[in-house]
Design a protein around this nucleic acid. Structure first.
Lengths: 339, 339
DNA sequence: CACTGGCACTCTGCCCCACACAGTGCCAGG
DNA sequence: CCTGGCACTGTGTGGGGCAGAGTGCCAGTG
């Protein structure tokens, strides 16, 4: 159905369209890429590609542009992720290594990604539930009020104030602090319930009821309120495409302002250790139907800390953006693993 | 020079232009506003206003539009801050009161402001240095590493990990915790150096050197790294004006992404307890020269917690936006004071 | 003296047209 | 199966003409 040359024609169309923003015609295509065939032949191939739904043309006498399906094929079979150049790698590394804390890492990653790709960049903070506990501090703010401060292995510090159903003495809080601390240290938050399971049994029976109730509040706070955070940057890059689609700019900005939407975008990683691409209509997010999203998880292969990626027009440099996203994800992952 | 009627003409021009986006001509103006004079008279007044630099026209046969100077006069002398309607007030109050913590208050304020004004909203987190200490916790992470957790009266929780020049024993940390805690509780962070001044003298001489060096690190961390944060929202509203100035959209978005710029914007409040307006070229921020900024501080009159405001085109509803900004600032201030 | 009606002038926006151009689809021939 | 040729079809652009909005100015009037 689609022989090699037709695929080659599709590749040429995608590449030319991405770089020029203009529908590409048969003559220009036959000339610029050394296909060794005449424009007429290219036209036949184009007609075939159009029948299959990989390309369209805006109107009769215009050149062809890829459809979402065409981009999909291009990404899956016709392009290879473009590795960064050594200077780029060095720049990334030195820029990220200058970060002083997690916030800084995230901020720098966003800036880096948006500058490398010239697209909108999105970086998720390391997910709490998938991180493990480096330190859990319990501060006794008031008789019935505790402050939990959680420090994860990725350097994230999260705090929650929680109201207790009962009042606690300083002594009891100390007991709690020790009991929780010893059991949770090094554990992942998702495993917290299991790690704490034996706690009531092990405790002196006098404080057992209190312990149980506090424990449920703590678990609820730490596990059920995931506290996901997202950083966003480079929205100014969207204005480059104002000329193309001034009307779609608004929904895109609106979607990007919704934390929930962004989480959905980045959270849906089937295999977090490779670069993912969602193209146009493939996006479940209303408002991003005219954009493509390139994402990847960062952190250990099996249980990544979080995800990051870029959002841009479907007409984007997929190979390049995939390369940048992958590189940044790897560096960030290593950086946080080493922290 | 500018008699009452000329001022009235200016007001009419501003109001009409703001609501219609179109240059306003003498006839339409004479009809719509009951000025009781003929278009010709209005034209004379317009000519005078133009001589004075309050209005211009884009080209010979177009109507007039206000200049920055015209808006300035309008804001200063011709308009009164428009109070919100009771339903609006109730909506604000109930929406803000639903907030569970400071982050939530800020997020809600941003959303509220951007929805009320249909502009970009900016809200500064309560400034650390101007807040006072509700609780300061010192956690001993490692022999030479401390975690400071600061809770302010506005509910802001801020943490810093700090590396010490020496190692400390658990006992010494406990001493520190108590010494700092008792002296700083209730004190404003700007007063922290003074509050701690007597500390070295009061301490047992054995730990005095350690104490002094730790103290300097702590002060440096808490006072010199102000940790200002800003929340931003409603950037999608900018797209409404894409038609008017597609070229200026980019610098505006770029400026809004710079924390530093936003802080400058909001920080420059001579008198934080009243609404401020910066119009067009009055903005020191490159990139926001084509916008107006309405800001106000929130919190106690003498020492506000922070500032908030909106950014929009110079052609904005000043009276309404000033009313919204003022109302939200007051509610947020009260809410945080009561927390 | 301030206001008014009238008038000439100017500039924009729009419509219409024509024309060049880019690109296609199809067909007949190699 | 590829190619050159050809007819066809939309778009984009430039020019001309025309209506409309608005101004500036001037002479006249209460």
């Amino acid at each position: 159905m689609l022989d090699d040359r037709k695929l080659e024609v599709l590749r040429a169309i995608v590449e030319d369209f991405v770089s020029t923003t203009e529908p590409v015609g048969s003559r220009a295509l036959a000339e610029r890429h050394g296909l060794g065939v005449s424009p007429a032949t290219v036209r036949n191939d184009m007609a075939a590609l159009e029948d299959e739904g990989y390309i369209t043309h805006p109107h009769t006498s215009a050149g062809r542009i890829p459809t979402d399906k065409g981009y999909r094929l291009f990404v899956d079979r016709l392009s290879t992720v473009k590795p960064l150049t050594p200077p780029e790698r060095r720049a990334i590394q030195s820029f990220l290594e200058g970060a002083v804390d997690l916030d800084d890492v995230v901020r720098r990653s966003v800036r880096l990604l948006s500058q490398l790709t010239r697209q909108v960049a999105v970086v998720q903070y390391p997910s709490l539930s998938r991180s493990s506990v480096r330190h859990l501090e319990i501060v006794h703010l008031a008789p019935n009020r505790l402050l939990l401060v959680l420090i994860t292995d990725t350097g994230r510090v999260e705090q929650r104030v929680l109201e207790l159903p009962t009042t606690l003495s300083e002594q009891e809080v100390a007991t709690l602090r020790h009991a929780f601390g010893s059991r949770l240290h090094g554990a992942r938050l998702v495993d917290a319930p299991a790690a704490l399971a034996d706690l009531p049994d092990a405790a002196p029976s006098a404080i057992r009821p209190i312990l149980t109730s506090v424990m449920s509040v703590v678990l609820e706070t730490l596990v059920d309120q995931p506290g996901e955070r997202i950083a966003l940057g480079g929205t100014a890059h969207l204005t480059r495409h104002v000329v193309d689609f001034p009307l779609t700019l608004r929904p895109v900005l609106e979607a990007l302002e919704e934390q929930v939407v962004l989480l959905k975008l980045i959270g849906e990683l089937h295999d977090p250790s490779t670069v993912h691409v969602k193209i146009g209509e493939e996006n479940n997010v209303e408002g991003l139907r005219s954009t493509s999203v390139v994402t990847m998880g960062y952190g250990p292969d099996g249980s990544p800390y979080g995800g990051l990626g870029v959002v841009g027009p479907t007409r984007m440099d997929y190979a390049g953006n995939m390369g940048s996203v992958r590189a940044v994800a790897r560096y960030v992952g290593e950086l946080l693993a080493g922290a």
